[in-house]
Design a protein around this nucleic acid. Structure first.
Lengths: 183, 183
DNA sequence: GCCTTAACGCACATTTTTTGCGTTAAACTT
DNA sequence: AAGTTTAACGCAAAAAATGTGCGTTAAGGC
């Protein structure tokens, strides 16, 4: 059974999606986020504003769509030889990326969207990575529960990014991991 | 040294703030969130739209302001007689309130705001409560680290509300607390 | 190659957001 | 207590963004 995409995947439709996404990335790099508007994006992408409104619904949904795409990891987490090392390396990079100015902006975009699915997709990327680490650990005879890592490493990091509540640095991340994997 | 408020606190200014806040609460109960607009809020509050734009900046900031106000707890957490009981009771209520449709909407509003301070204030309410529980525990000769509770109970709950990643019910919350306080 | 229809462009209507300027009233001064 | 200063507001008009009807284009199916 072949899965039918909900949007047409080839030709003009795909070209426009790519063009609009690129326009968003360009403009959000050039100007402040607050003054990023649909008509400006449309002009840069060479489309009419109504195309964007009809296809995405509005600025919030478009930004969330772009953010999810950019949050999608391109590479597998590095293999350091041990489960704890893998998790440390991954978590520190995750913290760096997500707590950066760009990362925070993308998280805001994802959370602002009325589409619940955007935030969930964002989490899926993370659980996929943790799953890979867990399988790697299992093959080495080590233990790594991806659910525990999500609850006690990822969630605290995300909480501090979004709500503050304490410093967010490598020492903090390392403390979370030591707490989870004492040995 | 008396702290100078940045906004005038008495008279007309305060009346308008209250009126606008009330209008937001009324309208967000009456209509869908997506169609909540500044001009409608202004009309209900008996104010001109320009007042809202000048004072809050826009819809997102206004909604965040109202959400923070509504997230402010009115009562101290209940005293159950033990630290673990206190934390359980508080955490379950916290989970219920925050994961409700209204709670999620308010969290989205807070996160969407460009004002970082809104989200931080929201977290302060939580740490204040945890601090109260910790002091209560200390007076009883028990231990409760508010930082640990924030990291390993509150943060996972909030992560599942915002990003999914697993079921969110009382059993899950209880599991988090058992993990933190094994005895 | 023809047919069906989702997706787009264009022009126009509606709504929202911004801005200039006079007015009101809160906080300060004497 | 009366006068002064100025933050905040109302009003009105302009600017910008958002929504809609309709004809056109091109993707996917026959």
């Amino acid at each position: 059974m072949t899965v039918k995409e909900r949007t047409r995947l080839g030709g003009r439709s795909a070209r426009i999606q790519a063009s609009v996404h690129e326009a968003v990335e360009q403009l959000s790099a050039e100007m402040d986020r607050a003054e990023l508007a649909v008509p400006a994006i449309a002009a840069r992408a060479g489309v009419t504003p109504s195309t964007i409104y009809r296809r995405w619904g509005g600025l919030a949904e478009l930004l969330a769509d772009v953010a999810v795409k950019r949050l999608r990891p391109i590479a597998d987490p590095v293999d350091t030889g041990s489960a704890k090392g893998d998790l440390s390396a991954w978590a520190e990079q995750y913290m760096e990326e997500m707590s950066s100015e760009l990362g925070r902006a993308m998280l805001r975009d994802v959370c602002s969207s009325s589409q619940e699915a955007d935030a969930v997709r964002c989490c899926t990327y993370t659980t996929d990575h943790l799953q890979i680490l867990a399988e790697r650990a299992a093959r080495r005879g080590e233990q790594l529960d991806p659910g525990e890592a999500l609850d006690h490493v990822v969630a605290p990091i995300m909480y501090r990014i979004l709500f503050g509540g304490g410093p967010l640095d490598q020492a903090y991340v390392q403390g979370l991991i030591d707490h989870l994997m004492p040995t």
